[in-house]
């Protein structure tokens, strides 16, 4: 069944409380269950019946060749998919048992619980480093009890504190590419999400910055569930606990071919196509 989504600007019901806030505590890692997720762009199906569980406090890597729907799937997980004009989807995505596409769920609220880091570092250029970190709270009109503590905490988690602690008043664009990406991670962590989605966070960065970000991912995994899309097999092996291999065969929508523990996917995959991909035979 295809769910046609309302446009993102449609007014949401203000009386109905967002279900997450009541039942869950911000800052606790959450588990995502995707069930029968399909996706369309302009009537063309790009992703078909994906069932995947992203375990609490673990790092799940989504791997696969370009155009197999990994990023689309990732964007479905925090309702960024529906921002694209002509995008539709089916199936359900549950965060700790609550369907994020259920009636009365607000996209804004969902995105606060399921944060996202993009491929290209995108700190807000008109804001300082400190303002960038606090941006998410400002958007939600939450003023934290102690701003400087929160800035330090978030930047420390993002692995950036020592480099920028003396220049918090500088503009976010003044940082190097790798630092900008870690600032974006810190910005996402400042709202204390339960899940952090990362869409090829290192593809625009050099190896040293990549290493720093991978360290950061490992460090934050206790507090937040991480789902990462990557084209880099070594990176998937280094950072992830679980792995899901996506593949779109010719003229077919993307599907999950195999998923499981990372050692298993890379060590003894059951599917020949997975074996070929992780060993660099194609893709």
């Amino acid at each position: 069944m295809t769910t046609t989504l309302p446009p993102s600007s449609a007014p949401t019901d203000p009386d109905r409380p967002a279900s997450f806030s009541g039942t869950h505590v911000l800052g606790e890692p959450g588990q995502i269950d995707a069930d029968g997720v399909c996706a369309w762009f302009g009537g063309r199906i790009v992703l078909e019946s994906v069932d995947l569980v992203m375990e609490k406090s673990k790092v799940t890597a989504l791997i696969g060749p370009s155009g197999c729907g990994k990023s689309t799937f990732l964007r479905i997980l925090n309702r960024m998919h529906e921002v694209v004009p002509g995008a539709q989807l089916a199936g359900s995505v549950e965060l700790d048992g609550v369907d994020i596409y259920g009636p009365g769920q607000r996209a804004m609220e969902t995105r606060r619980h399921i944060g996202m880091v993009f491929q290209k570092p995108n700190p807000f250029p008109a804001m300082t480093i400190a303002e960038n970190v606090l941006a998410g709270l400002k958007f939600s009109r939450i003023s934290p009890a102690n701003k400087s503590d929160l800035i330090e905490e978030s930047l420390t988690k993002g692995g950036l504190w020592n480099e920028v602690k003396d220049r918090l008043g500088e503009l976010g664009g003044a940082l190097s590419g790798g630092q900008q990406q870690r600032l974006c991670i810190a910005r996402s962590l400042a709202v204390k999400p339960r899940v952090l989605l990362m869409d090829e966070p290192c593809s625009a960065l050099d190896p040293t910055s990549t290493l720093r970000i991978e360290q950061t991912i490992k460090e934050i995994a206790d507090e937040v569930t991480v789902v990462i899309v990557t084209h880099n097999m070594q990176q998937a092996q280094r950072v992830s606990d679980y792995c899901a291999f996506f593949l779109a065969e010719e003229n077919q929508p993307g599907r999950v071919i195999e998923s499981g523990r990372t050692e298993m996917i890379f060590g003894e995959p059951t599917d020949q196509r997975t074996f070929d991909y992780v060993n660099g035979q194609f893709g």
């Binding site: 804004m108 606060r112 993009f118 998410g136 939600s140 996402s188």
Partner: peptide, 21 residues
């Protein structure tokens, strides 16, 4: 457009994205 997406992914409503970003 990456800035708008980043803002939305942080949970900002559309008017907030325009006004603050």
């Amino acid at each position: 457009s990456g800035l708008r997406e980043a803002s939305q992914a942080l949970g900002a409503p559309e008017w907030r994205t325009v006004w603050s970003v």
